[in-house]
Design a protein around this nucleic acid. Structure first.
Lengths: 225, 225
DNA sequence: AAAATTACCACATATTTCTGTAGTGTCTCC
DNA sequence: GGAGACACTACAGAAATATGTGGTAATTTT
């Protein structure tokens, strides 16, 4: 009767689980509660239920299934991070569904957890996440890194810019005017215009801003420095 | 005398090392050559030496120190990836120098290796990298992931956009005109202009293209979708 | 050798953007 | 209840952009 509901203890690492599969949910809960330094505040079957409760506020780490009924794990991450921007959320998934996991990471999850990991790996992942690390498989890490790099495989080869065009687009991204670009590239103002037209054509846009946007999003030009 | 120079065998994983510290270089070489399924083609003390040789062409994995005399490891990565875009490069570093490692990853390295790792970890990292994964510490992984996410802690709080401004900036990134944005946001054309001015002020820019560029680079607006 | 392509320059003009200045209503703070 | 701050609207003019059309020289294709 004294432990009707878990008490929040500052010395413990508080975990909230969101997972629709009851067996999974309860297994994890049991595993985690067996540890001396962590405990499950509460385990929910849906995002909606978790968001309605006040448990998230006190959670140090949230483990969330990516494939949930109702609000998906990806929407859930976004929602939680909107309300609690610093909250540490780890995604869990049965499938090694790259696209979903990747998307979850973009939306604010710090790591990725396969559902078929061992007890010790589960606990290690939670601790890693809480200590400022990102638990994830090397394959996912690779995907993430490639997304940071240049020119990550454009679908249609038609949209690939040549050196001059890429150069001009970089200048556009710096907000330079046609004449400033002309000076920098030793072209005439209209020469710059010529290339910009071609860039627009290849990128299927019709303004500087959109060209820059597409260029950055497709990593045709540097995202850093 | 029969093994004066290592032969390239297609069944083996060919490694090239670039590391200025002789002890380190030779230790790794010995460790790797002790494995049956991998071998060091050659170990160089500088990037320049590696680039001049033709060993890189045949390398499956390149291990490169980040802190090299002459051409730095970061420049080295960029250079190698320019010549061999698919080459798998792992960075090695003594210090847990986040900024440099991160920068190396952006420039084309697939993973990160602390110099104080064990023999088995070294070998595992090489295999992970070669198998399409990214060997790296959870702390680095976290940094990388945060770089993908929204609004990752801007230095000056002055440059943080409010909801309306962020919304308008998203529209700008889509290449919409003032009047199109006005329609989409239920503002007047000049109302849109008002917000754009404020965005420019906060972002310290004075054109759409530059605002979009800064917005994307600082993750003030979505990079994906 | 003719035809086509590429890379650039030029001119023209309608549209859009940038920016200064200014006005209105609402809200907050003292 | 006055002073600011904020969000928005309005007007206006200079600057820049978007885009159509056409030209030239060099290179490649046929």
């Amino acid at each position: 009767m004294s432990a009707d509901k878990p008490q929040t203890e500052s010395t413990q690492l508080n975990v909230v689980i969101v997972e629709d599969n009851r067996y999974m949910r309860e297994s994890w809960q049991t595993i985690i509660n067996f540890e001396r330094d962590m405990r499950v505040l509460e385990a929910f079957p849906t995002c909606e239920a978790a968001l309605q409760s006040h448990m998230l506020e006190e959670a140090d780490v949230v483990i969330m299934d990516i494939d949930l009924p109702g609000m998906s794990g990806i929407e859930g991450v976004r929602e939680i991070r909107q309300r609690f921007p610093k909250k540490t959320i780890i995604m869990a998934t049965v499938f090694e569904d790259d696209q979903h996991v990747f998307s979850a990471l973009q939306n604010g999850a710090v790591g990725y957890l396969s559902k078929k990991i061992s007890t010790s790996e589960l606990l290690e992942a939670i601790r890693t996440a809480h200590n400022g690390g990102s638990p994830m498989s090397p394959a996912i890490a690779r995907k993430v890194i490639e997304s940071l790099q240049f020119h990550t495989a454009s679908k249609n080869p038609e949209s690939i810019l040549n050196d001059r065009e890429r150069d001009v687009l970089e200048h556009l991204a710096d907000g330079k005017s046609y004449s400033a670009i002309a000076k920098a590239t030793f072209l005439s103002v209209d020469g710059v215009g010529y290339h910009i037209r071609n860039i627009y054509e290849k990128l299927q846009v019709n303004s500087r801003a959109e060209a820059v946007s597409v260029g950055l999003k497709k990593r045709l030009i540097r995202l850093f420095r």
